[in-house]
Design a protein around this nucleic acid. Structure first.
Lengths: 237, 237
DNA sequence: TTCAATACCTGAATT
DNA sequence: TAATTCAGGTATTGA
């Protein structure tokens, strides 16, 4: 599958997204689908050398009503700063969009958790139990973090359409031109603060077209969600 | 039935546990089986003059998954301090072991409840619906509370063994020597903070022997549970 | 008022 | 066997 990315950057010939090797293609995608967004004064995310920290296969609770991600203690203590009152961590997704999560320690359960902001990411990325989130960090800049995800292989193909049940499936045509919906977009601003509800920059796997969120992950081939809602979230936290 | 209490204290001849008169032997047991544990700077519990406050026959909810005891409003407002954020009440059982319960007012249901810590007590005392808990307080010291319980007369004799279904019934032999499992125990420390999972000091009715919690209440005569777990709980809240 | 979000708490599993 | 971890709850708050 080849996607012509109409972004400001030059699309190199090597930018074919590997459909196989789901296991370890996260870096690859990050580098390949990099955009030239700059923010935080750092380097463009597509040239940022990064170090993988850990993955987590999401549990039902991680994606459910509890609105929190339990961060396995070993990783939390190894990679993240001590969680204090109001600690907030910022993670850039594949497209450089920042996602801010409150990071806390719950003494009662002795767990480290991402709370505020997490559920937005879950919804935006349509994460489900069994999917994997992957955390990495800039090799050169302490405290610069990245987040990525992959949907699990055997996930149901059913798309949740919410109330607008009459949504069409959107066959993913080869060569569909990706508009600048995310990135230095024309019609939709990329948030400088919290992420936009419309979805994290999903490499070449997910984008917005004519009011539809279109997903074209490697295993799902192509799918469209009727969710036309675009919820802007102020970066309150 | 005579039980030789191998505690540090002198066992007086009057320490025969009455097997009859289940109804009103709570105080008696308290006095009879008193240990000389001292804590909280108060007097030894076996000589503490006390005033009965109220009893409650436990409902299924009081002993179920809700992990809370509804305290009848009239008694709550009469006997307990106003429930504020994080209010915690401490109740000593027959043996002077303190049990700390969070005490709250739930505006939604307009009820006073004991929450955190309550389920531990329920398990330890093997309370079931229909059993009665009895609350009293020190006559001379405001804010010093005591808790006791009695199993209901017509309770099922079935013992819940959890997964370890092969637990033997433990015929209560007359003269079984009570080890110092609770109290100023040799092998098991009595917690200064929250109660030990192994059970409230149940007069001469319940003790730990060779890894079994042995119960010898008047009506159940004798029973053993295979629950060998001893859970230490930090008094964090 | 309803609902979502958060901050707790707990039991079971695991080490 | 004791201690830790964490998935899954509930209560309360806030929008």
């Amino acid at each position: 599958m080849y996607m012509d990315l109409s972004l400001g950057t030059t699309v190199e010939d090597t930018q074919e997204v590997q459909e196989e090797e789901q296991e370890d293609d996260l870096y690859q995608q990050q580098v390949l689908i990099g955009q030239d967004l700059q923010h935080g004064g750092g380097e463009p995310s597509h040239v940022m050398a990064r170090e993988h920290m850990f993955d987590k296969v999401l549990t039902p609770s991680d994606v459910g009503k509890l609105n929190r991600l339990v961060v396995p203690k070993q990783h939390a203590e190894r990679f993240f700063p001590a969680a204090g009152a109001g600690t907030q961590l910022c993670f850039e997704d594949r497209g450089g969009v920042p996602w801010r999560f409150r990071y806390s320690y719950w003494g009662s359960s002795q767990s480290y958790v991402m709370t505020k902001g997490w559920s937005r990411f879950v919804r935006a990325a349509r994460l489900a139990a069994g999917d994997t989130v992957s955390f990495s960090r800039a090799a050169a800049a302490a405290g610069r973090y990245f987040i990525d995800y992959r949907h699990c292989q055997h996930r149901s193909r059913d798309i949740s359409f919410g109330d607008a049940a009459a949504a069409p499936a959107w066959p993913m045509a080869v060569g569909v031109q990706r508009t600048a919906a995310w990135g230095k977009g024309a019609t939709m601003a990329v948030p400088a603060g919290d992420g936009v509800e419309a979805g994290p920059t999903g490499g070449a796997r997910s984008f917005r077209l004519f009011g539809f969120n279109v997903e074209c992950s490697g295993d799902d081939a192509a799918a469209a969600s009727a969710s036309a809602e675009v919820e802007y979230v102020d970066g309150d936290s």
